[in-house]
Nucleic acid binder design. Structure first.
Length: 196
DNA sequence: AGCACGATTAACT
DNA sequence: GTTAATCGTGCTC
């Protein structure tokens, strides 16, 4: 399987988010390969986007957002959860795609253990859950997903047909003013294909 | 130095 | 449907 290259992540964030649906997120952990197909993603685009962490400028926390595309932006929230993003567009322009849900395809036994024996259907169906299942934390903030030796990257997989894609407002950003609160920048694979 | 809150989850009623 | 958990960050004093 071929890995998605930096030129992919350098594209417009909405296109990248849409195209990421169905692609395979791979996390090599020691001798193991943990992987899942991306079934929900969300775009955060630029300093003008009041729901984007970059809205009030560069800080130590969000620095990776301003960095080159194809790197991870991983941040800590609610005092307990790590969330994984892929940095997009040109270096200096803060934009990213939040990975919100996966369908596990490899290393499921390990994911169950990392998720403390929870049922398979809730292993990776949320942004904080999938980082737990794939053992992704702040150590991956700023990580280059396109490096030859990367242990976290995205592999090309069959694209999801347009008929299976749902568009909606982003989750958990009700604090943001309009129009940002209602931008339909959440992309998800409709139910039936969740079990590929 | 102090404080309010979050791109969430899980365990309640 | 409601709420506790839990702490780094960024803003105010």
């Amino acid at each position: 399987m071929t890995r998605l290259r930096r030129s992919f992540f350098a594209g417009p964030t909405l296109e990248v988010a849409r195209a990421l649906l169905g692609q395979r997120l791979v996390r090599l952990r020691g001798p193991e390969c943990l992987a899942g197909l991306i079934v929900e993603a969300e775009a955060y685009i630029g300093q003008e986007d009041m729901a984007c962490h970059a809205h009030s400028g560069l800080t130590p926390r969000n620095a990776a957002l301003f960095g080159p595309p194809g790197h991870a932006y991983v941040y800590f929230t609610y005092g307990m959860h790590w969330l994984l993003n892929f940095v997009t567009e040109a270096e200096g322009r803060p934009a990213a795609v939040l990975v919100r849900a996966l369908v596990p395809v490899s290393g499921v036994a390990t994911m169950r253990r990392l998720r403390r024996g929870r049922p398979d259907r809730i292993l990776t169906d949320g942004p904080g859950k999938l980082t737990q299942a794939l053992d992704i934390d702040g150590d991956f903030n700023g990580y280059d997903l396109c490096a030859a030796t990367a242990r976290l990257f995205v592999e090309a997989a069959p694209p999801v047909p347009e008929s299976a894609v749902g568009y909606g407002p982003r989750v958990g950003v009700n604090y943001a003013p309009e129009p940002w609160k209602s931008k339909p920048w959440n992309f998800k694979v409709n139910g039936d294909l969740d079990v590929i």
